[in-house]
Design a protein around this nucleic acid. Sequence first.
DNA 1: AAAAGCAGCAACCGCCGACTT
DNA 2: TAAGTCGGCGGTTGCTGCTTT
Length: 351
Amino acid sequence: MGKGRAPCCDKTQVKRGPWSPSEDLKLIAFIRKYGHQNWRSLPKQAGLMRCGKSCRLRWINYLRPDVKRGNFTPEEEETIIRLHKDFGNKWSKIASCLPGRTDNEIKNVWNTHLKKRLDVKQSSNPSVDESKPESSTTSSSSSSSESFFLNERPNSSKTTTLGNEFNDQVSQSIDKIEQDLDKQVSDELIGIIEDPKESSISSIATSSQNIAYKVEQQLASSLSYPRSYDFDGILEEVDKPNHLYEIPWKSDYDFCKLLDDDSIGSFQSIENIVLGEEIVQDVKAKQGSHDFENELGVVGEIKEPKEDHVLPKNYDAGPEIDHTQIFDLDDMRILEYELDLGYIQLWPSWS
DNA sequence: AAAAGCAGCAACCGCCGACTT
DNA sequence: TAAGTCGGCGGTTGCTGCTTT
């Protein structure tokens, strides 16, 4: 087989299959705070046992706030059919003409609905206008794990049952995870710096998971779901200690390099070191442009996408960054944001 | 009520091109 | 210029829930 391309990750070391609410929370919390400069290293830094590609896919297709969920309108279907005539299976190109829709979603709709519909029409009446869609019955709603964020507020009773209290609690839970992770990571790092031989990065991951577990237990106990939500089961699935990512101390070059760096003596935030330069770059970029806030809809008004412009698949990294500056995390902290979770949709196990 | 078949869709896989070293 | 890395893309798979028998 020759050299070939190295796999993007060790398949035996990563979790696969549907994403759990716990993982979604971690990914959202991490990206909300640090952005996603490097997908490959993101899961490790976020404490997720997932392939970077998997994280990217999950974020782009389901978790990012500008993803539009729900049924395709007849107009959207008509657009897809028309564009497919022009572009063929260039799903990303088609998606760029449908704000909020992802290539994966469009691909699925085409394969499951539109293609068949056109086949039927063509076989029954070859002269019929192909571009005229039938009444929209297609749905992009998930059958397994639901989107965490929805642009359209569903008016289903199960959502309104929980109301603002639910939203507040979920938002608070995410904040709590972030705060606890910050504190725990800082404590661990101080321990590592003081006595490197006795610690390892993996211990941080362990601690992070323990914290996330506790926080989610709080979430589970504090929320009054219509029916009990099996947090234990989900966490057991996600946070199996036996499957912890074991990161060899010497293998994390960036981390060691940072520790060796002179800046260690004057660092202003432990998080700088843990997360590495790439994260700092991203955060500063986001800070400078406010794109991140807009992207996540946490500060101010959300910019409406232009008619012919879809939010980019690859987010703008923002302006040039002066890497020589010492990063101060406090500068970028989102002040008193209020994540509007009114459009939150429940996972099936919650409903 | 149970089994089989089907439909929908989330997620994975592997290739490709751009970029970096 | 070659080799390596990474993000992005499109094809495909397999799980889940619904419908039919």
